[in-house]
Structures are given as structure tokens and as C-alpha cells.
């Protein structure tokens, strides 16, 4: 594993834990898109089915189990425990417009027409757009709590670092996976606008708010 991949995985973990911690501490999931969190739970579930079929390393297995557990815990907090604080009216992105085309694409473009491989491909495609309901919610309300922006930054950083990881792996290992690379590029691009706001506003101590 190279340094980019290592930092990326921990940035991803940090994002997940920041979100869980924020919801737990404030006893509220205001401003958080439950739909994005359900999509991430689906992403992890469909991607990590290989937990049942193959063992890669203790690190790999532990991280996969932690990601899955945390994402289900987050969904539970939003839709069950702190449901009263969930801002469903603003979480109005139509997820079927993501899931259906992504499902179709996974069936059409994959490395191998086998169930596990198609589900893995589906999870890669779905992850690249799973944050859209959250970004849509922020654009609708015009603002985000600072802690939510830290969450988004860690999540975006994770994907950006994976791009460096793939460049590294291509040069030093001759490894590349076109499906992951293209989806990773799309995913990173979706965060660019947010990165700009994060650097120009949040890092200067201002709240992230969008012009009306």
C-alpha cells in the first residue's frame, strides 16, 4: 500500500466518524441527507460482499467491516433514533434518478458478467454520485454547519487521494482499473465546487453559506 492510499482510507474513516460523532453529540441530524447515507450503506453492502468469498488482509477485512457497521449506524441514527430532527422536506433529491441509471450502467459496462462483479461495479458507480442528495440539500437550504463541511472535505479528500494512488499503482505496479478510475474522477469533480467554498470560506473561519 502506498502513502496516498493509506491517508485516503483514514480520511474516509475520519469522514464517517466525524458524521456519526456530530449526530450523536448534537442528538440531531439536521442538515444531513439521509438519502445520501442510505446510498452509502448500499454502496458498502454491495461492494464488500467479497468479505464472504475471499480474504485479502486483516487490514482490508477490518476496514470493510468498520465502514459497513458505521454506515448502518448512521442510517439508524437518522431514520430511527433521531428521526424527529431529520429534515426530510429539504432532502428531496430523487434517488431513483441515480440508482436506476447506475444499475443499468453496471450491467452494461463491467469487467465480468457475474453477480458479485456486477454488484461491485454498481457500488463503484453509485459511490461516485451518492453525495449528490447531500450537496443538493445544501444548495437548497443555502448553508451547512461547519462540522458537516469537515465531513464533506474528508470524503472528497479520500477520493482525490485515490486518484494519486492509481497514478502510483499504474507507474509502479502496472495496475489500473478503468472502471474505478473513471468513477473516481467523476466523484472527485463533483467535490471541486465544494472544495473551493471550503478553502475560501470555512478555512477562514466563516460559515458555509451560499448566495440566495
Amino acid at each position: 500500500m502506498n502513502i496516498f492510499r493509506g491517508i485516503a482510507d483514514f480520511s474516509h474513516l475520519a469522514a464517517i466518524i466525524i458524521l456519526l460523532h456530530k449526530i450523536w453529540k448534537s442528538r440531531s441530524c439536521a442538515g444531513i441527507s439521509g438519502k445520501s447515507q442510505i446510498l452509502f450503506a448500499i454502496v458498502f453492502t454491495t461492494r464488500y460482499l467479497d468479505l464472504l468469498t475471499s480474504f485479502i488482509s486483516l487490514y482490508n477485512t477490518s476496514m470493510k467491516v468498520i465502514y459497513i457497521s458505521c454506515s448502518y449506524a448512521t442510517v439508524y441514527l437518522i431514520y430511527m433514533k433521531f428521526r424527529a430532527t431529520y429534515d426530510g422536506n429539504h432532502d428531496s433529491f430523487r434517488v431513483e434518478f441515480l440508482v436506476v441509471p447506475v444499475g443499468g450502467l453496471a450491467v452494461l459496462i463491467n469487467h465480468d458478467f457475474a453477480l458479485l462483479e456486477i454488484l461491485w461495479t454498481f457500488s463503484i458507480y453509485l459511490e461516485s454520485v451518492a453525495i449528490l442528495p447531500q450537496l443538493f440539500m445544501i444548495s437548497k437550504t443555502g448553508e451547512a454547519e461547519t462540522i458537516t463541511t469537515h465531513y464533506l472535505f474528508c470524503l472528497g479528500l479520500y477520493r482525490a487521494l485515490y486518484l494519486f494512488n492509481w497514478i502510483w499503482r499504474f507507474y509502479f505496479e502496472g495496475f489500473f482499473d478503468m472502471i474505478a478510475i473513471v468513477a473516481g474522477l467523476v466523484q472527485t469533480v463533483l467535490y471541486c465546487d465544494f472544495f473551493y467554498l471550503y478553502v475560501t470560506k470555512v478555512l477562514k473561519g466563516k460559515k458555509l453559506s451560499l448566495p440566495a
Binding site: D50, N60, M178
Partner: peptide, 10 residues
Amino acid sequence: EFNIYGHDEL
């Protein structure tokens, strides 16, 4: 080299 049925990346 791709398409292994355990994916080493997360």
C-alpha cells in the same frame, strides 16, 4: 491485472 474476486482497495 484487474477483475479479481476480492478487491484489495476499499
